[in-house]
Design a protein around this nucleic acid. Sequence first.
DNA 1: ACTTTGACTATAA
DNA 2: GTTATAGCCAAAG
Length: 114
Amino acid sequence: MDIDVQESVFQIVRLIPKGRVTSYGAIAQCIGTKQSSRYVGWVLAHSHGVLPAVPAHRVVNRIGLLTGKHHFDTPTLMQELLEAEGIRVVGDRVSEFAVLFWNPMQEIYYENNL
DNA sequence: ACTTTGACTATAA
DNA sequence: GTTATAGCCAAAG
């Protein structure tokens, strides 16, 4: 079976719980292409119109900065989506990022041992 | 088959 | 905290 890397990225992002966020590097590490966090962003840039929907707004960079907000329909849409989930965004940065951070590896480990 | 790109990250100064 | 630089890798052109 040939699983595209981009499809793996979509699946991981779809696992992100509402109200939580993760980083490009964490996703890259989770799917195996650990050093190519840049590619994760490249994939998400093409995630518009993909079904089922990919909550790309829950993916930020390693310090919680909303670096991808310009790729949404409007520059403020990403922040609005996050705030709608209870995440506070101040100065394009996720507040309490360390607390809200969701590590994909933890979820995979949990599912494998369920 | 080669070059460019990208919503990144780690490190150093 | 900042800026600069290098590494990284799959997809698109």
